Simulated scan of single mutants.
Amino acid sequence: MTTTPTVSVTLHVNGEAFSLPALDSRTTLLDALREHLKLTGSKKGCGLGMCGACTVLADGRRIKSCLALAALYDDKEITTIEGLARGSGAGLHPLQQAFIDHDGFQCGYCTPGQIMSAAGLLREGHAGSADEIREFMSGNLCRCGAYSNIVAAIAEVAETPLESGPDEE
């Protein structure tokens, strides 16, 4: 009988350290967050890194947590949707509020990944125009089609003026 190899991992998630002493070495970061730490904000969508529902920040960079092995993020700082507002004082993070104000979600399933990806693109400085926002958010899918509202929410937080279309004067 073969045994599954395990590793000892310490994940720093939303400012707290979590020790996982006997984690299956094949465990994704998404599964470690959802199943071991009970942080269910990051969603399991396609499991292939195509939809972006699982997006989190790792040392400030956005990653698809369904593709990342948890063991590779030992001692890295992970921020999930649950911890995003932590640094912005009481209440919601400005992106969370903007998504509400602009109705940047419908079913809400993709929203945590959309918001975390938006936080990453703002940190990267990729919100200079609506086209740039769309380009750098292209790895996050919304089956409900709330894209224009998502772009408007991100643009508001980035203080990026949106161009007017022919029907928007």
Results as ranks from 00 to 15, higher is better:
60 G>K: 12
148 S>L: 15
84 L>A: 03
158 A>I: 10
90 A>Y: 06
76 K>H: 13
152 A>D: 10
104 G>N: 05
23 L>H: 07
35 E>P: 03
10 T>R: 15
103 D>Y: 10
33 L>V: 08
52 G>N: 06
11 L>R: 12
91 G>V: 11
146 A>Y: 07
71 A>Q: 10
137 M>V: 01
145 G>L: 11
4 T>M: 14
78 I>N: 02
14 N>P: 11
137 M>G: 02
36 H>N: 14
106 Q>V: 09
127 A>F: 01
10 T>C: 10
106 Q>T: 09
84 L>P: 11
89 G>T: 05
156 E>Y: 09
28 T>S: 14
46 C>P: 04
97 Q>K: 15
34 R>V: 06
126 H>D: 01
162 L>Q: 11
75 D>P: 00
124 E>K: 06
168 E>M: 10
31 D>V: 06
75 D>I: 00
88 S>N: 13
98 A>V: 09
12 H>E: 13
26 R>W: 01
136 F>A: 00
21 P>R: 00
168 E>D: 15
169 E>F: 13
14 N>R: 12
117 S>M: 10
151 V>G: 06
105 F>W: 07
126 H>R: 09
8 S>V: 07
162 L>N: 10
168 E>A: 14
76 K>M: 10
32 A>F: 09
5 P>A: 07
65 S>P: 03
68 A>Y: 02
151 V>E: 06
129 S>L: 02
166 P>D: 12
57 L>S: 12
165 G>R: 12
28 T>W: 03
169 E>M: 12
165 G>A: 11
128 G>L: 05
